[in-house]
Design a protein around this nucleic acid. Structure first.
Lengths: 216, 216
DNA sequence: GTTTTGGCGATTGTCGACAATTCCCTTGAC
DNA sequence: GTCAAGGGAATTGTCGACAATCGCCAAAAC
């Protein structure tokens, strides 16, 4: 079942399954050589992470996204991640900051290694996941996981817009720097800027896609 | 299936099913006169709303809560509801404010009618749901729904501590007043205070429960 | 030409049975 | 008396089949 969920998840994030496409239980089950039960379970899991939507008696569909939905997503990310960072500072969770710094090194490494986009995106995701999980409030991580899949998808879109992969790593540095200085305001602004830039990029890109003037 | 989910949900919120209790699929299925499939589906739904937890190959358990977890919950509520209110002001969503004011009237009405605790708690929940749904960002509402069940449970705990039910309605008024004045800072502080007081109450109550010096 | 209604095909919803796994209790060794 | 290994009961995981429901298309009525 977990295997089915992972496979479907990858297929959706990489775009193999087009947004809006119907997820026929029997078709998926046949293709993966299992029965419909584990497919349903897996689909329910993906529903939680926002990858698919469910309509009663009609089945599962790959969630369609829009510029507006992505804009809303980034608004939520800003709120959650700023709150998480604030918590890190207020509770003096310095080892969280260390882990974030280490993850930036990882980002540089995968960039230097010329890794494929998915690997880079996952390293990027991990940075933000570490921020939420290291906040000390598991509810923040829970919210992050809820929107993780859609976020991953959106970062995938943005990643293709960067010419130099090292730049992706660099955009995270001001956040860690501000955290190291223990400066709440600077941290908030760093995150607001980091996510704001991404929000701008992904929203514009999607508006272009919707207008038909750009490729996904 | 929806029927099963609703029944289980009520049983948990009202305390018929004790925290930590195992949710045996076959037992629940037999009691409700259905097969295990819809029970599993319903349990998955309840998992999303945080009412039950799932352990692989071990099944579903009624989620146990703690003073710490409730404290974390209220921290998240503060973050989300403040963000939602901020959005209401920045986008000039005055009809949301009208609906919130109307909901306070509802709160007074159920108080005057001497309604039972569950009805009052649901009216209270509706106020906060309206704030999130009326924010214009559906993601905020999504987060609210994720934590709705646990929140409802916690408000149930607090509600019993109030002697006069009208006081519950009154604690919401400063929020609407600040919103009407279009004052972002005052709104933020009103919500922080409103949720902060509840956080204090519920956390203390649960610490007492954990210490064995109070009843749930 | 438009709208409503009927039926057909396909898909989901539910079921009972079997396989796989886990947990607990017994048994045995030390 | 304590601990480890084994076996059995109980529970979850998966399966294939059937029932219920939905959407589509054609046919008929207006």
């Amino acid at each position: 079942m977990q295997r089915v969920a992972t496979l479907l998840s990858k297929a959706i994030v990489t775009g193999q399954l087009a947004p809006g496409a119907r997820l026929s239980e029997s078709v998926v089950a046949r293709e993966l050589g299992v029965s419909r039960a584990p497919v349903r379970e897996a689909a329910r899991l993906l529903e939680n992470s926002g990858l698919v939507t469910y309509h009663a008696n009609r089945g599962f569909f790959v969630r369609e996204t829009s510029a507006e939905a992505l804009n809303d997503l980034y608004e939520l990310r800003m709120v959650i991640e700023i709150a998480a960072a604030q918590r890190v500072l207020r509770h003096g969770l310095t080892d969280t900051i260390d882990r974030l710094a280490a993850q930036i090194d990882v980002l540089h490494e995968v960039a230097a290694a010329g890794a494929d986009m998915l690997t880079q995106v996952e390293a990027d995701m991990e940075f933000h996941r570490l921020l939420c999980s290291g906040s000390g409030n598991p509810k923040f991580l829970h919210v992050f996981e809820q929107i993780a899949a859609e976020t991953e998808f959106s970062i995938m879109v943005i990643g293709r817009l960067y010419d130099d992969p090292h730049k992706i790593a660099e955009t995270h540095e001001p956040i860690v720097n501000a955290l190291r200085h223990g400066d709440e305001v600077a941290t908030r602004e760093a995150i607001r800027y980091h996510i704001g830039v991404a929000q701008e990029l992904v929203t514009r890109q999607f508006r272009d896609v919707e207008a038909g003037t750009a490729e996904r």
